[in-house]
Design a protein around this nucleic acid. Sequence first.
DNA 1: CAGAAATTACACTGGTGAGTGTATTTTTCG
DNA 2: CGAAAAATACACTCACCAGTGTAATTTCTG
Lengths: 199, 199
Amino acid sequence: MKHSDRKRADILAAAVTEFRAYGYDNTSMDRIADAAGASKRTVYNHFGSKDQMFEAIVHELMDRSDVLSDFRYEPDQPLPKQLKSIGNQILNVFSDEGYRDLARVVLSRLIVVPQCSAIISEHSSRINTMLADWMRAAHRDQRLNVPRPELAAEQFVGMLMSFGFWPALFCVQKKGLDVKQSTFVNQTVTMFLKGYQPD
Amino acid sequence: MKHSDRKRADILAAAVTEFRAYGYDNTSMDRIADAAGASKRTVYNHFGSKDQMFEAIVHELMDRSDVLSDFRYEPDQPLPKQLKSIGNQILNVFSDEGYRDLARVVLSRLIVVPQCSAIISEHSSRINTMLADWMRAAHRDQRLNVPRPELAAEQFVGMLMSFGFWPALFCVQKKGLDVKQSTFVNQTVTMFLKGYQPD
DNA sequence: CAGAAATTACACTGGTGAGTGTATTTTTCG
DNA sequence: CGAAAAATACACTCACCAGTGTAATTTCTG
């Protein structure tokens, strides 16, 4: 890796760390430069302004959740097995500490930069659509009775997120609910499939 | 109402509006004073500092969700009816525009003022506990099979929030899912009860 | 190695905003 | 009414910070 690229990466990483610790507005470009072990001028050579640097961070956040590929419906595999795998895939992305750091920085800036919501919208609806497709396939196969696949997808993802993403994002510790991710996913898949099981 | 109290309320309201529109750090005390039709000095006489003013806003947020009283379990009422009522109660609080404005301001400041998460934690766990109690009662009554009431409560609230709170909070419009609140609640209650129905 | 490209140190500008001091006017209340 | 409490106008301090200019140094690349 070239020295220049290394610098760029260092700066971006330092920016996320500092933004995460102090918030966007309370982090000066001088501090980012310091933390990255770079000079302020270099920071400005790579990212024209503080805003552009933030934009770069938003892009990094988006790239992260692109690892979620299609949730393929397998006609010859048991539904619980398939849905558990999907659930764990989703939670693995969203419960990653690095992903949450990025998300915190971006979400806390949403008031000031509302354009971000369009981007987030895009991504969350991508996951939802993929999951709804899976539901529709299972419905067509008569192994599930899901009259509204989009609504059902929303429900499923909602349960996962409110277990493994939102509380951790806001550093809220859950009292009285101390279970592993896999336990929660299993339990949720079981309940969900029973709730949508054909008559 | 005394002139002094009126001023205080005006200032607080103006602060929420401005913070909501521009974010905490990009809102100057001068602007708040202007928007409230008060002098800067009066602002400082009521709230010693910008931070203290923010604190007052947090307290207002907390008071709002205290309207949720016990979710009483009624042995002689149908479960769907009871749970729908609970679901709608919850969503009525969280989908109120004023509540969301407050929540946006507070959440966007969480990075800088992590103490807030303890407060939020308190509140979300309060709702969860109340709902878990309801579940436990229905389980004891053998009308539901809920081995883990806390987990089930988390699931139920999670579905509601990810329909009616998070997207609206972040101004994310949901593509491909255009249903009324009551429809979503009804559908969710039906699925949930079927998923936890006793064998 | 030689020239180009990137990095650095550092000083500097211009703007903004939190919080204060003060003298004056308005509101409250016995 | 009359005195105390609150509100106002306004000027002012002090600190912080985004972004720039420049000249010297280091790193890349042919």
